[in-house]
């Protein structure tokens, strides 16, 4: 058993892979909780895909891929916001148009560049090929993002819950929105190396969705998201080593398993909890009049 754990760590590429995956997991997990609560999952999808041309261009001119990715991530957000505020087009359509256009631009760029750019590495990640420089880059950007998210967490939650109150306090709602979207772009950059463009979106949505089934306290949800996603990352990397499967896919699958467990056994809306609740409700209705939903009676008047 110990061997199974220690054996991969003899290789420096495996320790680097593990570290990069953990940093990506923690960063994504935190941000994910806000994204899911606000209903910005599709925005996460958009930004992660839209960075493709940025990554390709950065490779071509020999800059760190993070810079290209960040520029295009922020650019995509600005474009989506611009289309929404100047036309009658709804958010989902604006998002769809912008991110597919940018993703297509990336695909076209790759088709015209020398073979030094490996499309599959960008799309599906190349965690086993993480260089020492990549690791430093991910560590720096990841810690910066996590630090900002933690320091501003109460403001971000206020923005997510009641932007009108944030405005009433004289805070800049637009500024908070920009901050969260900027953090989204940085988070995508952090996770690219580990899981690639296609699967980043899983890291941005699944943790936040999983903890909805486990808790109703924001701080606890943040903690649970980090723990579960970090554990999934470790499990994914080890499974990838021992079973010889794709690392990015393996990490995301591990997260999906965590979600499934929460879905089946979670105390908040899990299937088992629901079945048990139904059985209890049925037992009680035989005696008294149906009084299951008593707490909210005056809250549902249309």
């Amino acid at each position: 058993m110990i061997d199974l754990i220690l054996e991969p760590l003899q290789y420096s590429f495996m320790t680097r892979a593990l570290l990069v995956s953990l940093v990506a997991a923690v960063t994504c997990a935190l941000l994910s909780v806000w994204l899911v609560q606000i209903g910005w999952s599709l925005m996460g999808d958009a930004v992660s895909h839209a960075v493709l041309p940025g990554v390709v261009i950065a490779y071509l001119i020999g800059w760190p891929f993070a810079i290209g990715a960040f520029v295009f991530g922020v650019g995509a957000v600005a474009l989506i916001g611009g289309i929404q505020s100047t036309t009658r087009i709804k958010a989902d359509a604006a998002i769809g148009v912008v991110f597919t256009a940018l993703f297509a631009l990336g695909v076209v760029l790759i088709s015209r560049t020398p073979s030094s750019v490996d499309l599959s590495h960008i799309l599906f990640g190349n965690v086993l090929g993480t260089s020492a420089a990549d690791l430093v880059q991910v560590l720096v950007i990841g810690s910066l993002t996590v630090a900002v998210l933690l320091v501003k967490r109460r403001d971000l939650t206020l923005f997510a819950f009641d932007p009108a109150h944030a405005h009433a306090l004289g805070l800049s709602v637009r500024g908070l929105r920009a901050l969260l979207l900027g953090m989204l772009a940085l988070t995508v950059v952090t996770a690219l190396q580990a899981v690639g463009i296609i699967l980043v979106v899983a890291m941005l949505i699944t943790p936040g969705a999983t903890v909805v089934l486990l808790s109703r306290r924001f701080d606890r949800m943040l903690l649970l998201a980090v723990l579960i996603t970090a554990a999934s990352a470790v499990a994914g990397v080890y499974a990838s080593y021992h079973l010889d499967i794709a690392t990015g896919g393996s990490i995301v699958l591990a997260q999906a398993v965590a979600f499934l467990l929460a879905f089946l056994f979670g105390p908040r809306g899990g299937m088992l909890a629901r079945l048990r609740g139904r059985r209890r409700a049925r037992a009680s209705t035989t005696g008294a009049s149906a009084g299951a939903a008593s707490a909210r009676t005056d809250g549902v008047v249309p």
Binding site: R154, L169, R217, F218
Partner: peptide, 21 residues
Amino acid sequence: FPVSVRDVVAMGRYGRLGVTR
């Protein structure tokens, strides 16, 4: 939304708190 009554009321104090609230 995962906030308690106390969380909501605490948001009334945010304007007078430091950067981490």
